[in-house]
């Protein structure tokens, strides 16, 4: 319990630090949101008025504490560009991004785990070497290029896939999948490549352990040895990588949503940055932070489920 409590404190500290950085960055960043809104021809009084209207003339610490209060209560202020509450904008787009991230993670798990296991069991044989070099290439592919290639060669040729836009799950499950699978693959492929290597290494490390020999000496069939014992032990290091990968996936949605014109949080972020829409950018950055930090927290809890040795500490 103490372990989880300690992790939770760390989570809170991380969120606070990120909130300070997010807030500070906008003070340092070139480009004045007020001037952006009013254009280059605006006269000084107009600028002053809007500035006080947005609360930008107040001392920094007041602006910060107000903003933090907003985060805690869920009121992230109004978007300058859309003249709408940030909360509503985020809520409208979250389902797209969450679906995309979830499908991506699922694809990464479903492919990299069995593939890593397969390669580990055929260590240094042709199939293993082929896979290992293929993943080298996979890691080197930039996702925006991969996305465009998938649109060009798969999206345009296979009837099922839509190459732009989003269909909500509530409208049609197949429709949602038709818009999400290609972008998910785009993010997933480089991540599979990375994760495959970790899985393979983790499995190879476990197979050498004494306890594996003991289990084999009990006559347990190889499938059970690998999928029950070795996999569960190997999941401890693999889980760490999954935490990192999930963060990568969340970040990956930003670019890929642009490529596939998905109306998700990532696309919203780009628009917000281009318009110096600071309440919106800050809101989105906080959302991404909380998402990533929460995922890491969940990973930490999963450790205790997987590894009884952690529970004692």
């Amino acid at each position: 319990m103490f372990y989880i409590f300690r992790r939770f404190i760390l989570l809170i500290i991380t969120v606070i630090l990120v909130s300070i950085i997010t807030f500070a960055v906008f003070q340092i960043l070139p480009g004045d949101p007020v001037r952006t809104m009013l254009g280059t021809e605006a006269d000084p009084t107009q600028i002053e008025n809007l500035r006080s209207e947005l609360g930008l003339d107040r001392p920094l610490y007041e602006q910060y504490t107000d903003w933090v209060k907003g985060i805690v209560t869920g009121e992230l202020g109004n978007s300058i560009r859309f003249s709408m509450p940030v909360k509503e904008l985020l809520l409208a787009r979250l389902p797209v991004t969450i679906s995309l991230a979830a499908i991506t993670l699922l694809i990464v798990c479903l492919i990299s785990l069995p593939l890593g296991m397969f390669a580990a069991r055929r260590q240094n044989r042709l199939s293993d070497l082929t896979l290992s070099s293929a993943t080298q290439i996979g890691m080197a592919i930039p996702s925006f290029w991969l996305g465009m290639m998938l649109i060009l060669y798969v999206g345009l040729n296979v009837e099922f896939f839509k190459i732009s836009g989003y269909i909500p799950w509530s409208t049609s499950i197949a429709g949602a999948l038709s818009t999400l699978i290609l972008p998910a693959l785009t993010i997933a492929i480089p991540q599979i490549a990375v994760n495959f290597r970790y899985v393979r290494t983790a499995i190879l490390e476990q197979v050498r352990m004494d306890y594996v020999r003991t289990i084999r000496s009990k006559g347990i069939v190889e499938r059970v040895v690998m999928y029950k014992h070795v996999l569960k032990n190997a999941m401890i290091p693999i889980l760490t990588v999954f935490g990192l990968i999930t963060a990568e996936i969340v970040a990956g949605t930003i670019i890929v949503e642009q490529v596939f014109s998905l109306p998700g949080v990532g696309q919203l972020l780009i628009t917000a940055i281009n318009n110096r829409d600071f309440p919106l950018v800050q809101g989105i950055v906080m959302y991404i932070t909380v998402a990533v930090v929460t995922i890491n927290f969940v990973v930490d809890i999963l450790y205790t489920v997987l590894d009884p040795r952690i529970r004692l500490r």
């Binding site: 352990m209 004494d210 020999r213 003991t214 000496s217 009990k218 590894d307 040795r309």
Partner: peptide, 18 residues
């Protein structure tokens, strides 16, 4: 594990830790 079974040198590492 049935007709022949074996015990090993390292009891500390010979059991599955999880």
């Amino acid at each position: 594990g049935n007709e022949i079974s074996m015990i090993f040198q390292e009891p500390m590492t010979s059991l599955d830790p999880v």
